[in-house]
């Protein structure tokens, strides 16, 4: 019984952890929009702009990836089940 409760709560927790994906989505969309503006203003610098944007997107992504790692841990390597 306790095990079932822990498993159910872990599944719900994994789902909740993925709400973290909202932030990077907004942030990366904003960065991409700004990059599109910059390319529109200065098309000759597009390769530099793309590189900077990808780097910024990668850094902005970290929080979402942390959420994903927490969700993966809860689903596949659950540390709570062993604590019964």
């Amino acid at each position: 019984m306790e095990r079932a409760i822990i498993l159910a709560a872990s599944a719900i927790g994994a789902g909740l952890a993925m709400i973290a994906g909202v932030g990077p989505g907004i942030g990366q969309g904003y960065a991409a929009g700004k990059a599109a503006e910059a390319v529109g203003r200065q098309p000759e610098a597009s390769s530099d702009i793309t590189r900077t944007m990808l780097l910024g997107c990668a850094v902005a992504e970290s929080t979402g990836i942390y959420g994903l790692v927490v969700a993966l841990l809860l689903l596949f390597a659950n540390p709570l089940v062993g604590k019964l």
Binding site: A58, E61, S62, I65, Y66, L68, V69, L72
Partner: peptide
């Protein structure tokens, strides 16, 4: 930590 998790998370998430 963030560099390692970023690369791992992207590939493992795709796999899942």
């Amino acid at each position: 930590v963030s560099m390692g998790f970023r690369h791992f998370g992207n590939i493992a998430g795709g796999m899942v």
